[in-house]
Design a protein around this nucleic acid. Structure first.
Lengths: 294, 294
DNA sequence: TCGTCTTACGAGAAGCGTAAGAATT
DNA sequence: AATTCTTACGCTTCTCGTAAGACGA
């Protein structure tokens, strides 16, 4: 169960090919073949069926473990290095598009004003990624968002080691409707009234999460594998499907006039933003974290 | 961050000696020295100060990660092997002394009656160990106990991979008092009334947990690093200190006449038993698990 | 000076690449 | 027949043990 072999195994499984994995990892096919053989002989079990290459039941089981395990290993390494690294005047912030709202951006600006020497480097990421980026030390602070019942914490991927998550903001939800939608005039809608409408499936608001919270249904009209809010709103305006967003993401000048927000009245849900960080050494990063949560 | 090196590192840190770790692991001192050097050069940090051998701050940080990480690795291995192993008619049960109450033992007996070919092998363990034993595949089923607020789940060590914990039993708590104790006649006591009494510190009921639940205080009169209930009660009878136990652990014939149980009325706490198991293949083990929780 | 860790060096094992062989499609 | 994985073999690298050296108590 050498992590090296585990990495090779997940890469092979992902590609469904020894040669493709070899290319990605910078080995020859032969080396990959030997590594997989070594792992299989270590466990005493076949992990992959060949031609076509696909995991056996035992292999599938191992795949479920390997990802979190390797993540935890990288996180541990990053944590040790971080604890020993000297304080820098660079803050690397990873944020999901909907987490960095105008309000949160404002708080960040105020925190920077108190810390003029601080350089901030922002990158956007998917909701599922923020925790891993922070855990692996690629970001000092993370801002994720998600939809939950009021005051509930976000459900973060486990096994990323010691990490602090603090609520930063909560706001109500709206459904973005095209201007010509029949429900446009309403002062509020229940999600249940829209189970049969067509929806956009995007990382910004995955339909799977919506179904978790509001029951089955919510068929996907269009899947958009990107996280640009502007694009999403144009898709809504064009009638490709509906989407649930935090209320203040749908105020001018962001909102095109052909999209109308209608508050979600039931179930009682909110859009929540949380700040993620590992144990921070005293310094600018910790100050900004305090300012964002304070 | 090779797990092999990590194992060596934790062993050295535990012994505070390269030579002792070498003896335990079956290497020469030289090999240990080279392994530690390799780990330090991999991370680019000194992890141990020599003579005396003790972890640096970075080393201490790594130690916090290494244990759970290695446990998770062993658990993953065990889980893959377990999933591929053929069903056996052997049930290995790991139970803490207070988890296997008369009631739970009775349920186990009934489950065995329905499954006559089933061989049961029982081992007792400490509360903190049960989860690891199950995760690493050394036991099929685990029974742990602990003190919690009513209906709260036990707090299990994290990072042991996918594991199911199901409540099996809850019962009220009593304080075991020596027969000549002034509170003996009472129908109930609050723990707060006993913060200044002397207590036994044992794995059966760690004082640290009591302080978590009922505030500071609870000085240790005697620390007993064993888990024999009979011994503990003799210690109580002799006046070495008090202890909190589940009510039915203190009924005849277990209870010596020189120990008197008095119910704990506040805070509202219970003794809870939980059954632990990994994903079980259909078979005798799963049947017994169902019988114990049902 | 004694115990303990580090370093030097040689032997063995492990891992990778090249190249040829086998198995599917 | 073409593609893809496996195996054989040689080379390199890694790791360990022995033994000598260095460092503290």
């Amino acid at each position: 169960m050498d992590p090296h072999l585990l990495t090779t195994f997940v890469t092979v499984a992902r590609h469904g090919s020894f040669s493709a994995a070899a290319a990605e990892l910078g080995y020859t096919q032969s080396a990959i073949s030997q590594q997989i053989a070594a792992l299989e002989s270590d466990l005493g079990l076949p992990l992959l069926r060949r031609r076509p290459v696909e995991p056996t039941p035992a292999g599938r089981r191992l795949l479920e473990h390997a990802g979190p395990l390797l993540l935890r290993l990288r996180a541990a390494r990053a944590d040790v290095l971080r604890a020993a690294a000297p304080a820098r005047h660079l803050l690397r912030l990873a944020a999901t598009p909907l987490a960095l709202s105008a309000e949160v951006a404002g708080r960040l600006a105020r925190a920077r004003a108190a810390e003029p020497r601080l350089e901030v480097r922002l990158r956007t990421c998917r909701p599922g990624q923020a925790a891993a980026l922070v855990a692996e030390g690629h970001a000092d602070l993370g801002l994720t968002d998600g939809i939950v019942a009021p005051s509930d914490p976000l459900r973060l991927p486990p096994d990323t080691g010691p990490m602090t998550a603090t609520g930063v903001a909560e706001q109500d939800l709206v459904v973005a409707l095209p201007a010509d939608h029949p429900l446009t005039g309403r002062t509020g809608v229940r999600l249940a009234d829209l189970v049969d409408a067509r929806w956009l499936d995007t990382p910004l608001c995955p339909l799977a999460r919506l179904r978790d919270l509001a029951g089955e249904g919510f068929p996907a009209g269009l899947a958009y594998d990107g996280d640009d809010v502007h694009t999403v709103l144009n898709l809504v305006a064009a009638g490709h499907g509906l989407i649930v967003l935090p209320a203040r993401a749908l105020t001018p000048p962001v909102m095109p006039i052909s999209v109308v927000p209608v508050p979600v009245t039931a179930p009682r849900l909110v859009h929540r933003v949380e700040l993620l960080h590992a144990t921070l050494p005293p310094g600018p990063a910790a100050d900004v974290a305090a300012a964002l949560t304070g």
